[in-house]
Design a protein around this nucleic acid. Structure first.
Length: 818
RNA sequence: GCCGAGGUGGCGAAAUUGGCAGACGCACCAGACUCAAAAUCUGGCGUGGUUUACCCCACGUGAGGGUUCGAGUCCCUCCCUCGGCACCA
């Protein structure tokens, strides 16, 4: 047999789909819309790799499945085109980022088209296009206007290799997310987005989302809510006071000293002359520490006594004030009350410096008298609070202090504001102007875009490259008209990607970033598919931007992505992550050339649990190629039978019923499993139906050809989302009307799934002893009677007596004997 | 340490959510076709024991307990792997 599926088939149908505009989104059907989105591509130097196929190809299969179910599917594609890799490549090779990015986009467009996905290219966007980033700048201005973008002096994360600051989210255990360089802390004046304003809502709304639990957990961890109280301590012999944050107000009576962060503002004021040399030395040491040193949790506690004392707010006793680097200036109030008996860190510190360790909580059942004791318990040695549980005490102590304004309930978040400025070239310029007279002035919206100049020396020098382009950098103040300077920093690329899903449905709108009525209908995104590595970056930022623009009145929904799936990672054949340096990279191109793109797509569907991924397997792709050929032979064989079979029947006997059962079982299985993106079992069901058809053909002399035709028609339909070119070709060869993707998804018939007889298991005391073919029409009592009269069963029961019989229709009968 | 996801044949994996563990496929073994090979087709394939064979028996989802007529699935205690957070008060 001449094979009729190949790479040529792909190209032929891609051409036809393109000419007939088959996948063009029809806005008139917006009420049936389904927004299916894959995380857009980063056009790096290399080409589409297996990971892209795994993400885009199989999400496209899901989208096609939805299309056949009658949805008007919106599946756009674009490019996250600003960013460091293009710039670093430029520094290395001298090729301008714009040149290399434009080239890469062209290559990737080509490759994405060759995948044969339904992407509607009319909506394509690239974040580095002026038509896109002018609206990114607009976004910035709106955030600025509403107080959500602000400039501040703060200790920031500086990557000495990338020569730029980074957001907290881009620092991974003290190292740069991109280049693994050790991060340095620097005090700099930078732009921030006030994401912390939404901390509580970002946390609370997580529970309403159909997202993987690990991603929800990661965001919860990252936001890091802690509920507690702020308590005020006065400095002895002074009017000065400071507050501490604690989640364990019930342990207040056990506070035997307090600790300020070395950077705490009060330190200079309260330190006694005798201690000032030691304190200054310690502050200097703390500042010099690298991020990695500071994060080490196993190092010995260090600290210095300030010489000053605080007044305990309940006992009025004097307790010493220390400084130590285990207290972070950036969290809570930068000061803690130390309760060494009930906190492991305070305990270590107190041991080291011989500070008192009074116990004020005992275990509820009195069983644990070891220290430190960090669980909840009963308050002891706490005067009027004695006998209260920790839970009660946490309230009672704060309420007591509140009487004198020395305490209030309070919530703290680990989440920090999002640092968005970068001292790099290849990004959207920040639309702000620095004027000596007027201060920081926003660029008027009518002056947007602030165009990124082409002619810039982008080699890193520790300051923003845009300062080297004088005609960009030097400008006039829009307020007073005097000479002024543009902000030379560019926006974090995560700003670009934090709103692209809002732009897609209206990506050609030149008057506004999006039309409100339109996106209120098009969004939220119904299904979002991409890697899990964005859990606390892109996925968090996008939620923040959505909520912020909702509050500004530009859109009416609360969350951007209702349902999220993370595809797994396809590893190299060696089981390691694919990388050029390891030489274990698998490129899709040669497989597509050899087998056609559908074989690759089907293999990715069949070979892995979608959310798990796994090592590349050369043999697997052969197996799937074999399956595709097997289907092709079958289609051709039956099309032949249609014309030439001399002896046919329309009767439906046992063999026909069995075949029809497999057919409807397959339809049902694929319908359910495709819905939840469990693609491997979808392909299994198709294989079973194929096998059943072969078996029927082989074992049946006089065939019900019409049934075979119907089965194969359904097989082509359920296979279509996973092998779009192949099935379109088979559909065509079978004489059906173009296109298979305009067909409705087949429905399964529950009646066909009920067989006349079924094999059920018979257990004695829960162990399977035999199996019976029974009529499915039998009721429970009849089944029980039948089982008990079965010779095998009688033999097993022997002289024991039957205590109980459990009958589960269509499954099993369990006879309990004693 | 806290949070999340996992641990099932030689391998990739399934299991209608408490009801026949291992579907589907890979690899392997045997057979058919063939001069031969490839391709294709048919059958076998968790482990151990027993048996000439058909059969039969026992064991089996990381380990150990428990609930239940019945547990891969629920509960408790551990072990291991991966991911997130972490001197966060």
């Amino acid at each position: 047999m001449e094979k009729s599926y190949s790479r040529q088939t792909d190209l032929k149908w891609q051409q036809k789909w393109h000419e007939t505009e088959l996948y063009k989104f029809n806005v008139d059907r917006i009420d049936d819309k389904l927004y299916c989105l894959e995380m857009f591509s980063y056009p790096s130097g290399s080409q589409l790799h297996i990971g892209h196929w795994y993400n885009y190809g199989l999400t496209d299969s899901w989208a096609r499945f939805k299309r056949m179910q009658g949805y008007e599917v919106f599946e756009p594609m674009g490019f996250d085109a600003f960013g460091l890799p293009a710039e670093n490549y430029a520094i290395k090779t001298g090729i301008h980022p714009k040149t290399s990015t434009d080239n890469n986009i062209k290559t990737m467009q080509q490759q994405l088209r060759s995948m044969g996905a339904m992407f509607d290219w009319d909506y394509e966007l690239a974040t580095c296009d002026l038509s896109y980033y002018r609206w990114t700048q607009w976004l910035f201005l709106q955030l600025y206007k509403s107080g959500l973008a602000y400039r501040s002096d703060a200790p920031v994360n500086w990557c000495p290799s990338c020569q730029t600051v980074l957001a907290n989210e881009q620092v991974v255990s003290g190292q740069c997310e991109r280049c693994d360089s050790e991060i340095v802390r620097k005090d700099m004046n930078q732009w921030f987005f006030r994401i912390t304003k939404y901390a509580d809502e970002l946390l609370a709304d997580l529970d309403s989302l159909d997202w993987p639990s690990r991603t929800i957990a990661a965001q919860k961890n990252w936001i890091g809510k802690s509920v507690g109280a702020e308590l005020t301590f006065f400095v002895s012999d002074s009017e000065l006071s400071f507050t501490v944050f604690t989640t364990r107000a019930d342990t207040l009576l056990g506070a035997s000293y307090v600790v300020l962060a070395p950077e705490h503002k009060l330190v200079e004021i309260i330190t006694t002359p005798g201690q000032s040399a030691a304190v200054q030395e310690y502050q200097l040491q703390a500042r010099k520490q690298s991020e990695i040193e500071r994060l080490a949790t196993d190092k010995e506690k260090t600290g210095v006594f300030t010489g000053a004392y605080a007044i305990h707010p309940i006992t009025n006793e004097e307790i010493p004030i220390w400084i130590a680097d285990y207290v972070l200036a950036s969290y809570g109030t930068g000061a803690v009350m130390a309760v060494p008996a009930h906190d492991t860190r305070d305990f270590e510190f107190a041991k080291r410096f011989n500070l008192p360790i009074p116990r004020v909580i005992k275990a509820k059942d009195g069983s644990d008298d070891s220290l430190p004791y960090t669980d909840y318990g009963i308050m002891v040695n706490s005067g009027q609070f004695n006998g209260l549980s920790s839970e009660e005490g946490k309230k009672a102590v704060v309420e007591k202090l509140a009487e004198t304004d020395a305490g209030k309930f309070s919530v703290n978040y680990r989440l920090r504001d999002w640092l968005v400025s970068r001292q790099r070239y290849w990004g959207a310029p920040i639309p702000m102007i620095h004027c000596d007279k007027c201060g920081i002035v926003p660029v008027p919206e009518s002056d947007l875009p602030v165009e990124l100049p082409f002619d810039v020396d982008y080699k890193p020098k520790g300051k923003a490259p845009l300062t080297t382009n004088e005609s960009f950098y030097y400008t006039t103040c829009p307020t007073c008209g005097e000479p002024a300077k543009r902000d030379p920093d560019t926006l974090d690329t995560f700003v670009d990607s934090s709103w692209y899903f809002l732009r897609f449905p209206d990506s050609n709108n030149e008057l506004e970033p999006w039309n409100r009525q339109l996106i209120n209908k098009m969004l939220p995104v119904d299904k979002y598919v991409g890697g899990p590595e964005h859990a606390c970056m892109h996925l968090l930022y996008a939620r923040f931007i959505t909520k912020a623009f909702r509050d500004m009145g530009y859109l009416d929904f609360d969350e951007p992505f209702l349902s999220l799936t993370h595809q797994g990672i396809i590893l190299g054949p060696d089981g390691k992550r694919m990388s050029k340096s390891k030489g274990n990279t698998i490129l899709p191109d040669s497989y597509i050339e050899e087998h056609g793109s559908d074989v690759l797509r089907l293999f990715l569907a069949f070979g892995y649990a979608y959310t798990e991924g796994g090592p590349w397997d050369e043999k697997g792709i052969k197996a799937v190629a074999r399956f595709v050929e097997r289907v092709e032979r079958l289609v051709k064989h039956v099309n032949q039978l249609k014309k030439t079979a001399s002896k046919v029947t329309t009767e439906v006997g046992k063999a026909e019923k069995d075949l029809n059962y497999v057919r409807h079982y397959a339809i049902k299985g694929v319908t359910q499993d495709a819905e939840r993106m469990q693609y491997n079992t979808c392909v299994s069901r198709m294989m079973e139906l194929t096998n059943a058809l072969y078996k029927y053909d082989l074992n049946t002399e006089v065939k019900n050809v019409q049934l075979m035709i119907d089965c194969i028609r359904d097989l082509m339909l359920i296979m279509a989302p996973f092998a779009p070119h192949f099935t379109e070709e088979m559909w065509h060869q079978s004489g059906y009307e173009y296109s298979i993707f305009n067909q409705r998804w087949p429905k399964y018939d529950e009646a066909a799934l009920v067989l006349d007889t079924i094999e059920i298991a018979v257990q004695i005391n829960g162990k399977i002893k035999t199996k019976l073919d029974v009529d499915t029409s039998l009721n429970k009592a009849e089944l029980e009677k039948l089982a008990l009269s079965e010779p095998q069963v009688i033999k097993f029961i022997g002289d024991k007596s039957v205590v109980k019989v459990i009958v589960v229709p269509k499954r099993l009968i369990n006879i309990v004997v004693k």
